[in-house]
Computed example of a mutant assay.
Amino acid sequence: MENFEEEYSNNGYKYIAGIDEVGRGSLFGDVLACSIIMPLENRIEGVTDSKKLSRKKRDYYYELILKNMVAVGIGRVNANLIDKINIKNATHLAMIKSVKNLRNKYDKQIRPDLLLIDAEHIEADIEQVSIIKGDDKCYTIACASIVAKVYRDKLCEIWAKSYPEYGIDKHMGYGTKKHREMIKLYGPSDMHRKTFVKNSENW
């Protein structure tokens, strides 16, 4: 994993935030983004793209990252708004919200000097760098990917209690065979993305 943070820190940047999203391809629920600023020293060994980690490992790193972070922010956009503005715009909005929500351990708002974003560019008056496969190459983005994934998985477990027939806590809202079968059987709920499931008769 490359040390982008050290490179930019040496150029005078103090608060460097990594940003990643989760739930972009889900049929159900929010798209969610995390912005996080991590200490430049004492990097957590073993942090990588959340998709490369087991659930147990993600949960472990999630707690460790939040214990060590300088500031963290979560941004969410729900299914109704995703249907209105499309998933790309909704993802960008979630990222912008996550930056605005950056808080330190004392709940003080922190404005970053630089944004390192996984393969995206957002409308923000903060300098930013888009890094292809950033969750695999950049430590801070990898931290954001883990926090975003675990945070959304926890939401899915909560949503599953309100919508038990869809098994959201098993597939996290993604289009598995079982999930598609349940949508066919019960129809989409008010938390399903209608633009994503409108062609369900062809599944």
Score class of each variant (00 low, 15 high):
4 F>C: 09
6 E>N: 13
12 G>C: 06
14 K>G: 01
17 A>D: 11
17 A>P: 11
17 A>Q: 14
19 I>L: 15
20 D>A: 03
24 R>K: 12
28 F>E: 03
33 A>Y: 09
34 C>T: 14
36 I>N: 10
42 N>W: 01
44 I>N: 09
44 I>E: 07
48 T>A: 09
51 K>P: 06
55 R>Q: 12
55 R>K: 14
56 K>M: 00
57 K>A: 14
60 Y>S: 14
62 Y>D: 03
65 I>L: 10
67 K>G: 02
70 V>Y: 10
76 R>S: 14
76 R>Y: 02
76 R>K: 15
77 V>Q: 02
79 A>C: 07
81 L>A: 01
87 I>T: 06
90 A>K: 02
91 T>F: 00
92 H>P: 00
94 A>M: 04
95 M>E: 09
95 M>Y: 07
95 M>S: 09
96 I>H: 04
96 I>C: 06
98 S>Q: 08
101 N>Q: 09
104 N>R: 03
104 N>Y: 07
104 N>K: 03
104 N>L: 04
108 K>R: 14
112 P>T: 04
114 L>E: 09
116 L>V: 11
116 L>C: 08
117 I>Q: 12
117 I>F: 10
117 I>N: 12
120 E>V: 00
124 A>K: 12
126 I>C: 12
129 V>R: 14
129 V>C: 02
131 I>T: 11
132 I>D: 10
136 D>L: 00
138 C>K: 08
142 A>S: 15
145 S>D: 10
146 I>T: 13
147 V>C: 11
147 V>N: 06
149 K>W: 03
153 D>W: 04
154 K>T: 12
155 L>Q: 15
157 E>R: 15
158 I>C: 03
165 E>I: 05
168 I>C: 04
168 I>W: 03
168 I>V: 09
168 I>E: 04
168 I>T: 08
177 K>A: 14
177 K>D: 06
181 E>C: 07
184 K>M: 11
186 Y>F: 15
191 M>W: 05
191 M>I: 15
193 R>K: 12
193 R>T: 08
194 K>L: 15
196 F>W: 01
196 F>L: 03
201 E>T: 08
201 E>V: 00
202 N>S: 13
